[in-house]
Design a protein around this nucleic acid. Structure first.
Length: 555
RNA sequence: GCUGACGUAGCUCAAUGGUAGAGCAGCUGAUUUGUAAUCAGCAGGUUAAGGGUUCGAGUCCCUUCGUCAGCUCCA
């Protein structure tokens, strides 16, 4: 017989008995009218769900109100639906894509056959206000695959998504007033709960982020629980704009990028150059103290070298075209500007016999490299075509990996954390499907990276399958003053290059062994000095002004 | 690269298709007044480049260059 009652465990450990079939909303009501009014969603054994769903027996629950950060995601997800509701009313033929919550807001992708204009956004925002005023309840339904397909016959993008769903996945749809969306949920109880929102801007976005597919029009917005939060967020955006390194770089006369020279190529003016100089010296001091040896290698090399390293076939799109050198009678010899230093550092290592006693050998160079980045990705000093890369390649034995990474993480903290005060994040990227070498090798490498991270007591995110085909890596990412995320340094292991260049050392057993390389290229240190400083603390601009003045006085 | 917006004096910005302007900065002179704004005058432009429409183009159209925003935080 079916039990007529269920019990749930509240956050304080007490239990509550409810009739079978009771929902989160029922629970909130049972606890108190105040909570019933404030309740937005419910956490059931860690999963956030709608209040309207029946509660299973024996679960741990916690009712979410506007005080819970997870509720903010729910609010924003629901805001995205309100946005889509409004767009569908104004553009009945609009096709709908995805509409998730994101950090600080939400977006929704549409195809209306043309881009949205600023006037469209205003009209949509007004329509959204009407939708929230109507206070439509969000109604969840679980449907069969056939039913789902029927409901979205006019939405090819949704149909494609339905086709991707696994056979055992529950398909749910949410309705708010006139709008129905394929959606996993959860949502706030009704559209009236969304009060403080603003549309920010529209831009093109490829369907599923794939540039081979059609371009949709994405509308970004933000939503908050209180007007105060919303206003604060808008102020924060304005403040951040003032701290943009491109603005400060101009104000302080740090650098310029000029059309006559080319996009992404930086002219360091005296005020910026003195910062560049100091930073270079700072970095070089650190690495010399820590057992690195400086090397200098040419800016151009024979193309053949990048063929041997394997870079050219993969990387050619990001390299500047070859130049003919006219050596002798041969038309065949071409040269390339270097996009990275590894092949040349490897040749330094390989220039003589190495003993296991010599390892690790740490070769470092702050080198100018040039990459033909896609035009649309360029951004001030942070994404450029010519940069000074603080680069190092460490040649070591497999048993030395962990210790070396352990020490390297200390340098990262010293530079990014202690010196620049950056909030950075560590991602451990593990073996991808297509990879080089055997599983044992990957086991050793990944474990070494992970235990170095653990020994340092660092928190990190796993990026399963995110490693390069030639080895796992630790990516170091940070946010700039305007909140955008950038790739800082990368610590990566490379099993490919030692193989290609037959790098060896003589072991204690008097036999040759394959060397492991571990690279530490860092595009952020000097390619973007002021950007780093500005990206840092809120006081960045003031510090920089002082530094620039000192620099000017000195010159 | 793709989609969209944009490109006017060194900088920040004006100019219903009808003689390109202002503030700041610069230069000259006056002022000597205690720390972010003294006064007067002068100079500064092939309106990104090239083409087209028009009696007439900064403004409308096309091409190129550049800048800015976005381009899976997965229903």
């Amino acid at each position: 017989m079916a039990p007529s009652e269920i019990q749930v465990v509240l956050p304080d450990g007490s239990t509550k008995t409810l009739p079978a079939g009771a929902t989160g909303a029922d629970l909130a009501k049972a606890i108190g009218p105040g909570l019933a009014k404030a309740a937005l969603a419910i956490r059931v054994n860690g999963d956030v769900r709608d209040l309207q769903r029946p509660l299973p027996d024996g679960v741990k629950v916690s009712i979410l109100t506007d005080k819970d950060p997870q509720a903010l995601d729910v609010l924003r997800h629901s805001s995205a639906h309100v946005l889509a509701t409004a767009v569908r009313q104004l553009f009945p033929k609009a096709q709908i894509g995805f509409g998730p919550p994101i950090e600080d807001g939400f977006y929704y992708d549409f195809d209306i056959g043309r881009p949205f204009t600023p006037e469209d956004l205003e009209a949509i925002e007004q329509k959204m206000a009407e939708v929230t005023k109507q206070d439509y309840p969000f109604v969840r339904e679980e449907v069969s695959r056939a039913e789902a397909k029927k409901r979205f016959t006019d939405d090819p993008l949704k149909l494609e998504r339905i086709g991707d769903l696994g056979p055992n996945e529950v398909i749910s749809v949410y309705t708010d007033g006139p709008f129905v969306d394929l959606c996993r949920g959860p949502h706030v109880p009704s559209t009236g709960r969304i009060k403080h929102f603003k549309l920010l801007h529209a831009a093109g976005a490829y369907w599923r982020g794939d540039e081979r597919r059609q371009m949709l029009q994405r509308i970004y917005g933000t939503a908050w629980f209180s007007k105060q939060d919303l206003d604060q967020y808008i102020t924060r955006l304005e403040e951040a704009r003032k701290r943009d390194h491109r603005v400060i770089g101009k104000q302080l006369d740090l650098y310029s990028i000029q059309e006559d020279v080319g996009p992404g190529l930086i002219l360091w003016h005296p005020n910026g150059a003195i910062l560049n100089f100091e930073l270079r010296r700072f970095i070089e001091d650190i690495i010399l103290q820590r057992g690195y040896q400086l090397v200098y290698t040419p800016h151009v090399t024979r193309e053949q070298l990048f063929l041997r390293s394997g870079h050219l076939p993969l990387y050619a799109a990001n390299q500047f075209p070859a130049m003919a050198a006219g050596e002798g009678e041969s038309e065949e010899v071409h040269y390339r500007v270097k996009p990275m230093n590894c092949p040349m550092h490897i040749l330094v290592y390989a220039s003589q016999q190495r003993s296991y006693r010599d390892l690790p050998i740490r070769l470092a160079e702050i080198a100018n490299v040039y990459r033909n980045e896609r035009s649309g990705t360029l951004h001030g000093m942070l994404r450029v075509r010519g940069l000074s890369m603080d680069d190092a390649h460490i040649f070591l034995r497999e048993d030395q990996i962990e210790e070396e990474i352990f020490n390297l993480l200390d340098i990262v903290e010293l530079v990014m954390g202690k010196t620049f005060g950056l909030q950075y994040r560590l991602d451990l990227a593990t073996r991808p499907d297509k990879k080089l070498g055997d599983d044992r090798m990957w086991d050793v490498a990944e474990q070494a990276l992970e235990s170095a991270l653990k020994r340092r007591g660092l928190t990190y995110r796993m990026d399963i399958g995110g490693g390069a085909f030639y080895g796992p890596k630790i990516d170091i990412k940070f946010n700039d003053a305007i909140g955008r995320e950038w790739q800082g340094a990368t610590i990566q292991l490379d099993y490919e290059l030692p193989e290609r260049f037959k790098l060896e050392y003589t072991g204690a057993d008097n036999k040759p062994h394959r060397t492991v390389i571990h690279g530490f290229p860092d595009r952020a240190f000097r390619g973007s000095v002021s950007a780093l400083a500005v990206a840092g603390a809120g006081s960045g601009a003031a510090d920089l002004r002082r530094a620039a003045r000192r620099g000017a006085g000195r010159a």
